[in-house]
């Protein structure tokens, strides 16, 4: 391969040095005794033992998974009708509507989450509406809370669900639906027995993709949550930048990494559709 060598060697050297080696180092840092930020040469499993034995940290990990699960669920529930409409509509606005539903990908997750703060804070839009309608006497506290984090993340990750489900719908032969309808099946029955089963891999891919991104998201839990709603990502940030305990930060990072990989492995087992949806920038 002499002709191809320089093309491959430079980018690979870069990725090995700046991605693979640091990630490998993270694993070793997680099992070394650290003095503050500097790992020493003595191996230890205390970092993992401390995280997994403390009810506080176990709670954080559990909350992260609950958040991820419900974010995935909400994303596919909201994305499915939208994706179905976008694929099947004959509106001349089709292209514009597709662009509009994917455009949020161009906004930083901070921009997308800020809107939820404006809606949910004590002087926010939702409280104004409830007060105006006379449904409540005084403003409710929606923030900080885990449900707010779930809604905010589902909103931020919706385009991934739309992309995954759209590609499953695009890959499906529309003649199958017409055949079911012409043989007398009702539209509802056609959907349940033909369309949904055929696009289920796309739904699973969207669910797992949203789940995996959600558990590693920092900004939304930081903005819509608080000290009582820490997730793995906000905890890692505290370990690394506030408490300066890089050993615990690395161990939590390894747990997060293993969780994301486990999820994507499940996606691989379910049919390998998950990678398709990742063609879009996060």
């Amino acid at each position: 391969m002499p002709r191809g060598l320089p093309l491959v060697a430079l980018p690979c050297a870069f990725l090995l040095l700046c991605f693979a080696a640091p990630t490998a180092y993270l694993f070793s840092a997680s099992v070394l005794i650290a003095e503050g930020m500097i790992p020493q040469d003595q191996p230890t499993i205390d970092n993992f033992r401390l995280i997994l034995s403390s009810p506080l940290y176990r709670g954080v990990i559990l909350r992260t998974f609950v958040v991820g699960f419900f974010v995935g669920l909400l994303v596919v529930l909201l994305a499915y009708p939208l994706a179905y409409f976008l694929v099947r509509t004959r509106s001349r606005w089709k292209g514009a509507l597709i662009a509009l539903s994917l455009a949020p990908l161009l906004a930083s997750v901070i921009v997308r989450t800020y809107g939820w703060y404006v809606i949910l804070n004590q002087d926010g839009a939702l409280n104004s509406l409830l007060l105006w309608a006379g449904l409540v006497e005084r403003p409710l506290r929606f923030l900080p809370s885990t449900p707010a984090i779930i809604v905010g993340l589902a909103h931020a990750l919706l385009p991934y669900g739309v992309l995954s489900i759209m590609s499953a719908l695009n890959a499906m032969d529309p003649a199958l639906e017409r055949a079911a309808l012409s043989l007398g099946a009702s539209p509802a029955r056609t959907f349940w027995r033909v369309t949904l089963p055929l696009t289920l891999p796309g739904v699973a891919a969207g669910f797992i993709l949203a789940f995996a991104i959600a558990i590693g998201a920092y900004a939304t839990p930081a903005i819509l949550g608080g000290p009582a709603t820490e997730t793995m990502a906000t905890m890692i940030r505290n370990f690394m930048l506030v408490l300066l305990d890089w050993g615990l930060g690395s161990a939590m990072g390894v747990i997060l990494l293993a969780s994301a990989l486990a999820l994507l492995a499940v996606a691989g087992l379910l049919g390998g559709g998950a990678r398709r949806g990742t063609a879009a920038p996060a």
Binding site: T23, G216, Y218
Partner: peptide, 17 residues
């Protein structure tokens, strides 16, 4: 790899490295 692994983990790995 960088697309699959959580970006946050890549960040702390690079910082330490």
């Amino acid at each position: 790899g960088p697309l699959v692994l959580p970006t946050l983990v890549t960040g702390i790995a690079l910082l330490q490295f």
